[in-house]
Design a protein around this nucleic acid. Structure first.
Length: 265
DNA sequence: CCGGATGTTCACCT
DNA sequence: GAGGTGAACATCCG
């Protein structure tokens, strides 16, 4: 579920509801969820601290902390994998969830903190592909897809013989684009996912940039990465919503890719 | 039972 | 070394 759009919703939720609340407890029932050598002990600094800012770069959510005296503490980095959600006081950052039906969902809570007022911030992640780390390196991430400029996008693609879609999803080049957004953007831009990334004309790069920004904006207002025009047709027998031609299913950049050979060139 | 799933990482290849 | 590919990770669903 989480691509840039969902993580931005999580960021907004944390900013709106989790800042400046004194932390009184850490919930880490799943040590495996703590990454890069992080331990429960190393998280004890959180007690008495509070979150002071919520930032996002690509799919990484960074919560800045300050101690009792207001001095800066470590940054808490949250990654949500394929199925992770953020909840504050039980309110999720996004509406729908794949595993929304039955079952007590609390069993999927992998990490959280409790606040002095009894509320809490929690990560709920059935597949456990997300994780928590301290002071995550943002240097490993490219420009954020939501704010990337035309020039930055152009430089992220130039010289690469990798498939265009693979390059778009390379978080070190462009941060935030996942499988669904990539397919949607390329479909809108009329570009084949298999094209060599560095082989685009300047006009095509401009088109890609315009549709990247446009698709993110539109899908955000619709409510998520799964709200693209192509989404309903990502299935056997699916047809292009634009021209009615049968969609093709390929693997590009290691991911299932649905696209329209009739208008994506 | 099997294949696939909105992500990241790591071993391995050219 | 750069750059790219595919499997593995863990769990659930159709």
């Amino acid at each position: 579920m989480p691509e840039l759009i969902e993580v931005e919703a999580y960021r907004a939720l944390a900013e709106r509801a989790a800042l400046d609340r004194p932390i009184t407890g850490v919930e880490a029932p799943d040590p495996w969820y703590l990454k890069a050598g992080l331990t429960v002990d190393a998280l004890s600094f959180l007690i008495g601290s509070r979150f002071s800012a919520a930032n996002r770069r690509g799919k990484l959510l960074s919560l800045e902390t300050v101690g009792r005296d207001g001095s800066p503490g470590p940054v808490l980095g949250l990654r949500f994998g394929m199925s992770g959600r953020l909840l504050v006081d039980g309110t999720p950052g996004v509406a729908s969830l794949r595993y929304a039906s039955n079952e007590p969902l609390e069993r999927y809570d992998r990490f959280g903190v409790t606040f002095a007022d009894g509320g809490h911030l929690r990560m709920r992640d059935p597949r456990r592909l997300g994780g928590v780390q301290l002071d995550p390196s943002e240097a490993a991430l490219g420009h954020d897809a939501a704010s990337i400029t035309l020039g930055q996008l152009s430089r992220a693609l130039v010289g690469s013989r990798a498939p265009l879609k693979a390059r778009l999803m390379d978080q070190a080049r462009v941060a935030g684009v996942g499988n669904l957004i990539a397919d949607e953007v390329l479909w809108r831009a009329g570009l084949s996912p298999a094209r060599a990334a560095g082989g685009l004309t300047p006009a095509e790069v401009r088109r890609l940039h315009r549709h990247l920004r446009g698709a993110l904006h539109e899908m955000t207002s619709r409510g998520g990465s799964h709200t693209g025009d192509l989404m309903d047709q990502r299935r056997p027998g699916g047809v292009c919503p634009r021209d009615g031609q049968p969609l093709r299913r390929d693997t590009v950049g290691g991911r299932t890719t649905w696209w329209c050979p009739a208008h994506q060139r």
